[in-house]
Design a binder for these strands. Structure first.
Lengths: 335, 335
DNA sequence: TGCCGCATGGAAAACGTTTTCGTAAATCGT
DNA sequence: ACGATTTACGAAAACGTTTTCCATGCGGCA
């Protein structure tokens, strides 16, 4: 109701508004005794500065935006957890937005930030995004952007991601070494950096081991479980069914598990499975799931740290493309 | 760089600042032609209002805060997903904070909102919180609060939760009907509403079926996986080991799975397991896991809807205690 | 004594909106 | 044709800070 503001405080203290403001911010212009007196009263009245006034004046809000395609996803959750960790430590506030894989909505969001709602933005692009103009505008407006996971190098911004190509290569090779001859890949939109890199890693591993690349073994999945279910079922019902499957994201593999149950396909005897995944229960599944785990938390931490550097040291900040390695954990699904 | 503001727009248009402002907000005071002209130019220059100025003036920010103990948790994720859904539809911005189960930090956060950073707050309390004074202050300051999941009825605020008591009762009864005689319960802090209700449901189900309540079968778990691992291992190594286990939250059961593997305890032959859980892979575990699933998404949606009502219709708003039912899905872990 | 510099504090502008109030011209009713 | 109302717009205050600039009093110094 009656939140105290500087004016009230100053009249209580018999000082001017500016003196109180300076005292609270430890200005050298104010004597120690006055500072103490002011702070004591401020605490007593539980004074909380109005951040809209102060942000307006300072043109800084200590707030960052995070845009992710979705939140019900183990990777993004851990990444956000990492972001929160460093944001909290550096006293930043975090606004979270879900683009739901819609480029239009992403664009709208990004544009709304141009007026300074946030000091910086972290983003993982939608599957549809292939035009960076909205982001370029933001950057030109002086608001730093850092990409994570689904990145673009088109702009002069930092990116934080994992070694997608190498990990996909390694995953595919893992299947080959386990004896697979007909390896399929469920890929994600190739508008995405990760989609391309993971597909390339897969393809090159096949080539290295003299296995043919069959386009019928590369299926494009969406972000709709029902559709993906059909896609994967079709793939696995084929009479020339694959004996190994490498999926670009976790959800495709979980669907594959369900399809296999339904079709009576035995994992790993009939089909070996490996996926990029941050599933906590990978080791408890039936059978346990071989995963390539991205350092999601660290990716989030690193991305947030980059962003805050860009915000706070604009002069000295140099954008970097940071790669954090994923690790392959062999389990029964490829045994 | 050079973001346009009202002053620039008005000088471009040859109108006053106030006219432009009113035109953009569709005021009845402005003629249709002027409105159109203004809007066209505003769009052309990609005008984005400075929300700090406007929030300062209007004392409204179209922003809500969400405080959850942690984010790496399937229940909270889904709830946040639901919150985002309605916030986005109603054009609210969502600030997310993690209390990390620290009462002190929760208090600090809540106090910082008193100055009007947000128009309202959604909160799921920490395990430690047993004093509501900080929340009462916020409410007295005219900022509505809605509790979800870990609620308190001490304040005159809406709460959204599930039927914890009945579900716990049902879960325990489910174990009894499956033939368990020695049923243990991993409980969560009894400072929490859900901790108490779930424990009571468990106890009353035992009583109804004439099974003794043994305090050694009720173990208090924390939020630290390492500690909880020890606690659960001790429980399951006892020579008079339980033959059924009902855990208050998902993570305890996942730990139990691991402990059982290590000790060679067979689920469900030696130990039947049931838990509150929002795990997507419950059906894919080895063995598949019987769960009581809370309608997390809907809880989030409902909580956000309540909050926005409280914000936008303060006169007509009546706080309610809303209960959304959980559903028990029997699977192999209690078979 | 006269001057300078320092320490401490205050007055007022500024941030970009929204909103209240005023005013001129146009329209209306009789 | 006259006052009353309506229409369309502008001037200026207000929101609560931060910051720039100025004022005062004091001690030190030559």
């Amino acid at each position: 109701m009656d939140s105290v503001n500087l004016k009230k405080l100053s009249s209580i203290l018999g000082l001017s508004v500016s003196t109180v403001s300076k005292a609270l911010r430890d200005s050298y212009e104010i004597s120690e005794e006055t500072k103490e007196r002011v702070k004591k009263i401020a605490k007593a009245y539980n004074y909380q500065p109005n951040i809209y006034a102060s942000s307006l004046r300072k043109a800084k809000s200590k707030t960052i935006a995070v845009i992710v395609p979705r939140i019900a996803n183990n990777f993004f959750i851990s990444a956000i957890d990492g972001i929160q960790e460093v944001a909290q430590e550096k006293k930043y506030h975090v606004l979270i937005y879900l683009s739901h894989e819609s480029y239009e909505y992403e664009k709208e969001l990004v544009q709304s930030f141009a007026s300074g709602r946030v000091d910086g933005m972290l983003i993982s692009l939608t599957r549809e995004t292939n035009d960076m103009e909205h982001l370029r505008q933001l950057v030109n407006n002086g608001i730093p952007v850092v990409f994570f996971d689904r990145v673009s190098t088109e702009l002069d911004c930092s990116t934080v991601s994992t070694n997608d190509y190498e990990s996909a290569f390694e995953a595919t090779e893992h299947l080959i070494k386990a004896g697979c001859k007909k390896i399929a890949h469920c890929r994600i939109s190739n508008k995405l950096s990760i989609g391309q890199h993971r597909l390339n890693g897969y393809r090159d591993a096949l080539e290295k081991h003299n296995l043919d690349f069959h386009s019928k073994y590369v299926v494009k999945c969406s972000d709709n479980d029902v559709e993906d279910y059909k896609t994967i079922k079709t793939l696995l019902k084929d009479k020339d069914r694959p004996d190994g499957l490498f999926t670009a994201v976790e959800s495709y593999t979980l669907i594959a598990y369900e399809v296999c149950r339904e079709l009576g396909i035995k994992i790993p005897q009939d089909l070996k499975l490996i996926t990029f995944s941050n599933l906590r229960t990978a080791g408890l599944l039936d059978p346990s799931l071989t995963t390539i785990t991205q350092p999601a938390f660290e990716i989030g931490e690193k991305a947030a740290a980059e962003l805050i550097s860009a915000i706070e040291k604009p002069r000295y900040f140099k954008p970097e493309n940071i790669i954090l390695k994923s690790v392959l954990s062999p389990r029964d699904s490829t045994n």
